[in-house]
Design a protein around this nucleic acid. Structure first.
Lengths: 200, 200
DNA sequence: TTGCAGTTGTACCGATCAGTACACGTTAGC
DNA sequence: GCTAACGTGTACTGATCGGTACAACTGCAA
């Protein structure tokens, strides 16, 4: 079917677009760049994405959202084993961000005015991530307020680790920080609420 | 003296340039933008910064470096009172980044290829900040390894808090995270090393 | 008043930008 | 093999990019 093939080609271009946007930013990624990295001519690009760069970024964000929903958010929200859910989240995240070599596109979109058109989507991404993790921690018997703080701190730490590792040019930094945060989370869940503890 | 006036005008343009770079990024800040925000015509801009945008960014980074050296790094490195040094650092940082509304230019430079020309400076900024804080914590009798981890975590948290607060569009997020991190640092210093503790 | 260094607005450069138009394959249905 | 729709390369648009050239203006010193 033609329709099928169109969608297939369009979809298969999205990962390359995502990588280009990550590396150069939304403004910095020119159509020439996007054309080169996708292997599609300008004509094809505008055939698949009539809305231009904005529609390409939209498609990329939708793809990211789908991936995170399936691999990160849903498992956290529906787990019955918080310890393994946390472990697997940290593992997936480290792999996804290539130990800090890969930038978080959503995070970087929030940093400058170029991403203003996508700010609702950016906010939704972070909000969902934090609430999904908090829900998982609550399932591990952590009181709601502390769970919310731990979740917030964790997403914050992941984003900070990317910035820091990129800035220092050392992925070891990323690995170290993530590992410590993982330990904090597991320790909190494992403690099993025997002791009511300071929660800021 | 004329020379004096030249330098004064050049220097007085730097904060406006910094704000423009922060808001639009290095590539996103066009000469038209820079001209408007500084109030200087293109002619004046190139008179003061013959090297163009790159020299403007260099001047901005130098200014940032000077400010951080004086207000953040030096106090941390030479303090005799770690508790108040940490408190004042967190306070200065929160004010500087406007509770997360203001982006960390150095951090955002590290995120995409546009900032590649400045990567040594970016790396030096983070390295110095971490080592200055670690030194301060060591002065508070925290063992070197733990101090290094705490310092790394803290700078990571600050950067992450900016990303998260910008992404969510909520400066309360920034304030909360910073406050918790401040508590962790003060608690570590105050404990005064009575108990040897897990340090990741 | 004259001269001069420092400063500034403006016109201009070639390159590149995002986006459009369209003609040329290519392929599928018949 | 014919046709028609789909996919794609290419040439083009006007706007804007970073950067240059330079003439006009400024204020100060003699």
């Amino acid at each position: 079917m033609n329709t099928k093939r169109v969608l297939t080609d369009r979809d298969s271009a999205v990962p390359a677009l995502a990588e280009a946007f990550r590396e150069h930013g939304f403004e910095g990624a020119s159509l020439a760049t996007l054309s080169k990295t996708t292997g599609l001519g300008k004509g094809s690009l505008y055939n698949f994405f009539p809305g231009g760069k904005a529609e390409m970024m939209d498609a990329v964000l939708e793809d990211i959202d789908r991936w995170f929903s399936e691999m990160i958010f849903s498992p956290l929200e529906h787990t019955v084993d918080p310890t393994s859910a946390v472990t697997s989240m940290m593992q997936e995240v480290a792999a996804y961000f290539r130990s800090g070599r890969r930038v978080c596109l959503v995070g970087s979109l929030g940093l400058n005015t170029a991403g203003e058109a996508f700010k609702d989507r950016v906010a939704a991404y972070f909000a969902r991530w934090i609430s999904a993790l908090a829900k998982c921690l609550e399932a591990g018997k952590i009181p709601p307020v502390l769970a919310a703080h731990l979740a917030e701190d964790t997403i914050c730490t992941i984003q900070g680790a990317i910035v820091l590792a990129r800035g220092l040019g050392e992925e070891a930094t990323f690995t170290r920080i993530i590992e410590r945060q993982r330990a904090i989370l597991l320790q909190s869940v494992a403690r099993d609420r025997k002791i009511s503890r300071f929660d800021g």
